[in-house]
Simulated scan of single mutants.
Amino acid sequence: MSKLKVIFVHPDGTEQQVDTEQNVTVLQLAHELGLEMEGACEGNMACSTCHIVVDKKDFDRLPEACEDEEEMLDLAVGLTATSRLGCQVLLTDELDGIRLFLPKTTRNMMGF
């Protein structure tokens, strides 16, 4: 299985290019790398703490978000038209070279 490239853009604008295996979520990869992505619900799509912003050039390569993901995204700070939950973005060959922006802040609404 070939590796694919993912580019994370940190809130300060620095870019971090990494190679990863296929079929891991953005949240799993972020945790493996020690990136600032909480994932309070552990990838169960019950929070918005793994909110990412997908580069506009890459957004159409993603499968459409389901209704449950859209509802969780409504809780995200800094929501954009290309926002997604990192737990729902499965990295596959089709997404090689994807550019993802990490938000400056997140809001943990778990338990409210």
Rank of each mutant, 00 (worst) to 15 (best):
1 M>Q: 10
2 S>F: 09
3 K>S: 15
3 K>C: 10
4 L>D: 02
4 L>M: 09
6 V>D: 02
7 I>A: 09
8 F>E: 02
8 F>V: 06
8 F>R: 02
8 F>W: 04
10 H>T: 12
10 H>C: 06
11 P>D: 09
11 P>T: 09
12 D>M: 11
12 D>T: 04
13 G>E: 15
14 T>W: 06
14 T>E: 13
15 E>F: 14
16 Q>K: 15
17 Q>T: 15
17 Q>M: 14
19 D>H: 12
19 D>N: 14
20 T>L: 10
20 T>Y: 13
21 E>W: 11
23 N>D: 15
24 V>A: 09
24 V>T: 11
24 V>P: 07
25 T>E: 12
26 V>F: 11
27 L>F: 04
28 Q>V: 13
28 Q>C: 08
28 Q>D: 15
28 Q>T: 15
29 L>H: 03
30 A>H: 15
30 A>E: 12
30 A>M: 13
31 H>D: 08
32 E>T: 02
33 L>F: 07
34 G>L: 03
34 G>T: 01
35 L>D: 02
36 E>H: 14
36 E>W: 12
37 M>N: 07
38 E>F: 09
38 E>N: 10
39 G>A: 00
40 A>S: 15
40 A>P: 08
41 C>F: 01
41 C>R: 01
42 E>I: 04
42 E>L: 02
43 G>R: 07
43 G>A: 07
44 N>W: 08
44 N>G: 15
44 N>Q: 15
45 M>R: 12
48 S>M: 03
48 S>R: 00
48 S>G: 01
49 T>A: 04
49 T>K: 01
49 T>H: 02
49 T>Y: 01
50 C>W: 00
50 C>F: 00
51 H>A: 05
51 H>E: 03
52 I>V: 12
53 V>Q: 11
53 V>F: 06
53 V>N: 11
53 V>C: 07
55 D>W: 03
56 K>V: 13
57 K>H: 10
58 D>N: 14
58 D>T: 09
59 F>I: 08
59 F>W: 08
59 F>V: 10
60 D>E: 12
62 L>I: 10
63 P>R: 10
64 E>T: 08
64 E>K: 08
67 E>Y: 12
67 E>F: 12
67 E>R: 13
67 E>P: 07
68 D>E: 11
68 D>T: 11
71 E>N: 14
71 E>M: 14
71 E>K: 13
74 D>E: 15
78 G>C: 06
79 L>P: 10
79 L>S: 10
80 T>P: 03
82 T>Q: 03
85 L>M: 04
85 L>E: 00
86 G>M: 02
87 C>Y: 09
87 C>Q: 03
87 C>W: 09
89 V>S: 06
89 V>H: 09
90 L>F: 05
91 L>M: 03
91 L>K: 03
92 T>N: 07
92 T>M: 13
92 T>P: 07
93 D>S: 15
93 D>P: 13
94 E>C: 07
94 E>I: 07
95 L>S: 06
96 D>F: 02
96 D>L: 03
97 G>W: 13
97 G>H: 13
98 I>T: 10
99 R>N: 09
99 R>C: 12
100 L>G: 01
100 L>S: 01
101 F>T: 00
101 F>V: 01
102 L>Y: 01
102 L>H: 00
103 P>V: 05
104 K>W: 09
107 R>P: 03
107 R>C: 05
107 R>N: 10
107 R>H: 13
107 R>E: 02
110 M>E: 14
111 G>N: 02
111 G>Q: 01
112 F>K: 04
